[in-house]
Design a protein around this nucleic acid. Structure first.
Lengths: 149, 149
DNA sequence: CTACATTAAATCGTGCGCTATTAAATAGCA
DNA sequence: TGCTATTTAATAGCGCACGATTTAATGTAG
């Protein structure tokens, strides 16, 4: 009953899983970014951190984490790599020494100019219309919010 | 022009990025699965491999990789963990000794019964209608195909 | 002022996912 | 036959992501 060649009808059929569609689309997307970001010297998660800092500089580790849904265990080593790449500096806050403020360097600010070209290249790689992409983006935001623990 | 408080209009604005929507939705989804799969003793990628094998047992490493868009560098250690958990066996093919066939054990087949409950739990966690989920899944499949290198 | 709780970041160990490389088996061809 | 090219897994090293713990600073009650 649960086996044999009815596998395409089973709720466990791989191609019916939203999770797998999400997983494999994300992997495919990150491959596109990897290629584009290589010339900027950034990985994909590093690029996301830079987006956050380009929007607002000087945020704390937890502030960045709140924005990206990541915690310090992920961010601390990542930020250290960006620091040793010369893109930012981590400095303990004077008012509350538990906090670490993350501040872009001149070089970090400058990298934004190169990054400006990335979104267009990605849009191109997707071969989707802006409308399609916006709809998908909104659907995904919606899903994430509903999944929030 | 490219700086200051027009960050919400910039093409680099985090919340406008499809990539970030995809990334964060995928992270949120995997957290849901992590919790559900813990009682099965599986991680999320391991669960995907089991789905592939429940659909068709005895596939080669590259066959599984082709299905999941992963290569042997990812799969080999993952399969070894599943093997040492007693869910499958890896055995070199007689006809072509370059290939390794992956065969479920009794225990591996049996785990499917427990897994049957997972999709429903996930659907529940998403708080989305089946129609919404199917549409999203198809959009994601579409995106992945267009991104294919 | 001390004792306890809370908060922020860092640290540790595990498991992907990728690039690049290696090793072994097979296929194709002179 | 002998040689090269291709195919299939495995391996090494790096960078996330996470659960769990640790350290240090701050807040608060007695």
């Amino acid at each position: 009953m649960t086996d044999g060649n009815d596998s395409q009808q089973s709720l466990l059929a791989l191609d019916r899983q939203v999770c797998f569609a999400l997983y494999s689309a994300q992997l495919a997307m990150s491959k596109v970014y990897r290629k584009l970001l290589r010339e900027l010297g950034l990985t994909y998660p590093q690029y996301l951190v830079m987006l956050v800092l380009w929007e607002q500089d000087g945020q704390t580790v937890s502030g960045i984490g709140h924005r990206l849904f990541l915690d310090s265990a992920t961010l601390t080593p990542l930020l250290k790599r960006l620091e040793s790449a010369g893109l930012l500096q981590r400095q303990r806050s004077r008012e509350d020494e538990r906090q670490v403020a993350v501040v872009l360097t001149e070089q970090g600010h400058k990298l934004r100019e190169q990054a400006e070209a990335v979104p267009e290249s990605v849009m191109c790689a997707t071969q989707c219309s802006p409308d399609e992409l916006e709809r998908l983006r909104d659907d995904l935001h919606n899903l994430r919010e509903r999944l929030a623990t």
